[in-house]
C-alpha cells in the first residue's frame, strides 16, 4: 500500500503503524455530564464499515506524523490523507 503523505508524498505503508478508527481523536470531555458512558463508548465501540473508513496511521519510520487516512476497506483505494493534528485542531482540540 502507498500512502500519499501530505508533506512527504507517496510512502510505502511499511513505514507506518496503523491504529484504526480515526474517531480516537474525539476523546470525550472528562468533565461533561455522562463522561463515564462517553469514555466507555470512546474506548470500546468502533464502526467497522465495508467501504469508506477514516483511519489513524502513524509515520513511525518517517516524520512521526499521525495521519488520518480515508480509505476504502473494500478496494483499498485511498481517497484522502490529512495531518491528524490539523484534523484535531479543526475539531477544536487545540483549546
Amino acid at each position: 500500500m502507498i500512502i500519499n503523505h501530505p508533506l512527504l508524498g507517496p510512502r510505502d505503508a511499511a513505514e507506518f503503524y496503523v491504529m484504526g478508527d480515526a474517531d480516537l481523536i474525539n476523546r470525550p470531555d472528562p468533565d461533561a455530564e455522562g463522561a463515564a458512558e462517553a469514555f466507555y463508548e470512546y474506548a470500546y465501540l468502533r464502526d467497522n464499515p465495508a467501504g469508506e473508513h477514516r483511519e489513524l496511521w502513524y509515520h513511525e519510520q518517517g516524520d512521526r506524523s499521525w495521519l488520518v487516512v480515508t480509505r476504502s476497506t473494500l478496494t483499498h483505494e485511498i481517497m484522502n490523507v490529512e495531518m491528524a493534528r490539523d484534523v484535531a485542531l479543526a475539531k477544536g482540540r487545540g483549546q
Binding site: 503503524y17 491504529m19 480516537l24 493534528r85 485542531l89 487545540g94 483549546q95
Partner: peptide, 18 residues
Amino acid sequence: AGPVFRHMEFARQCLWPG
C-alpha cells in the same frame, strides 16, 4: 520504549494539539 513514544505522539498531535 517504542509503543510509549508512539502513544505520546498520539496524545500530543491528536488529543492536545494546543
